[in-house]
Design a protein around this nucleic acid. Structure first.
Length: 384
DNA sequence: CATCGTGAGCAGAGGTGCGG
DNA sequence: CCGCACCTCTGCTCACGATG
């Protein structure tokens, strides 16, 4: 954006400033197939992936410019040499976490394959894989996890407290601001409780639309997403937790309208979208954004737990709680998180306390030994 | 003037399917 | 069952405007 200050010294070169040849190659990569010509490789990607790839190339171009390379004098594909690439990676690694660098390279190699399908990019893939193996996350999520029951309780507490404020008729007339604050807290409490029981991914969670994803059928409320709306391209079908049904009713009938009607500042340059039938709304009837959700969770979880529990971490918390409380039903967690394979649930989420794991291991071994002894004894008794 | 909420843009991951 | 190929998503920070 023209008016914005560059946040980094080496920001990605925007598409509009790419050399003509690069833009043509990218256009070709994005071309939709028709009956005569096959489409470009990138045409099938989701918009987020296209954006990422575009930025990856923009970053590369910006770096080349920084190195004094005259972009127009070289063909886009010919610019990508192993020597330059090595220097580029060295540059990327300065000041960026390993996983970030790996992410950039992953997009970069995807993009090369899409933009220059005639090239041989095996060396690039190899480089990416080598770095991938070494990369270790820098954030420690284990220390930030809390029991899922704690999250649920926090949600209920927030709703209960906010509910009493909303019940007080005098607040509505004398302290409109407090009433809006209570409505927000009620909404936050309901979101936290729902996330604790149904930890959807943020995009799906914030996208919940009344009548489309959230539907009443008989005495239950279902929550469903079509395959193309989910990250894994599989439909999600679940029911609204029974213990939150009354809260949902109250939210829809009383709380959401308060938020919709609340006055809010409007930046004339960025008029807000109307929320329509979106379930979670901010003040002034705008859909709650990822940033808004982050702020809400930061506010409440930091006060309650002493540290921030982000929305995605709710998933880890649930899986881990299930694993700790009821190790025999780990596949319950798999279904709750909508993972295709149990290994994903285990690999990514079940970071149970190692001491606990050790104890479990001892218990299991004791059980096995006991069973073995019993078998031996039974065999001895049955023997003639 | 603290608080709240916002979009933009970069940082830092999370996740699945498949083949060997 | 592991690692590769190929995606897709969330988190953080910032600047900003309005409100009580």
């Amino acid at each position: 954006m023209a008016g914005l200050p560059a946040r980094r010294e080496h920001a990605a070169l925007p598409l509009t400033q790419w050399p003509e040849q690069d833009r043509q190659a990218w256009d070709a990569a994005n071309r939709q197939p028709d009956f005569l010509v096959p489409g470009g490789h990138a045409a099938r990607w989701r918009p987020a992936s296209q954006r990422n790839a575009e930025r990856a190339h923009g970053r590369w171009l910006a770096w080349l410019l920084e190195q004094g390379v005259a972009l127009a004098n070289e063909a886009p594909m010919a610019r990508i040499t192993p020597e330059r690439f090595t220097a580029y990676v060295a540059f990327l690694r300065k000041g960026r976490a390993p996983c970030t660098v790996v992410g950039y390279l992953s997009w970069f190699s995807m993009l090369c394959k899409a933009m220059f399908p005639e090239g041989d990019w095996r060396w690039l893939h190899q480089a990416h894989n080598n770095l991938q193996r070494e990369a270790r996350p820098t954030r420690d999520k284990r220390s930030r996890m809390v029991p899922a029951q704690g999250l649920l309780q926090l949600g209920h507490e927030l709703m209960e407290h906010a509910g009493t404020v909303l019940d007080d008729a005098s607040v509505a007339t004398t302290q409109p601001r407090q009433r809006v604050a209570a409505a927000r807290d009620f909404r936050d409490g309901l979101m936290i409780a729902l996330l604790a029981l149904r930890p959807l991914r943020v995009t799906n969670f914030l996208g919940i639309t009344i009548g489309r994803h959230l539907r009443r059928s008989g005495d239950r409320v279902t929550l469903s997403f079509a395959g193309e709306e989910t990250k894994t391209k599989r439909p999600i079908e679940t029911i609204w937790p029974e213990e939150l049904l009354l809260s949902l009713d109250r939210y829809l009938a009383e709380v959401r309208p308060i938020l919709m009607a609340a006055k809010v500042s409007v930046d004339p340059a960025r008029p807000p979208r109307p929320a329509g039938a979106i379930l979670w709304v901010g003040q002034g009837g705008t859909p709650l954004t990822p940033g808004g959700l982050t702020k809400a969770l930061q506010r409440h979880t930091t006060r309650h737990f002493g540290h921030y529990v982000n929305a995605h971490l709710f998933r880890d918390c649930l899986a881990t709680t299930v694993a700790n409380e009821d190790p025999d039903h780990v596949h319950m967690a798999q279904h709750m998180l909508h993972h295709t394979k149990l290994s994903t649930t285990e690999r990514s989420y079940i970071l149970t306390d190692s001491r606990l794991a050790l104890r479990r291991h001892h218990d299991l071994m004791a059980k096995l030994r006991k069973a073995a002894r019993q078998r031996l004894r039974a065999r001895a008794e049955n023997a003639p």
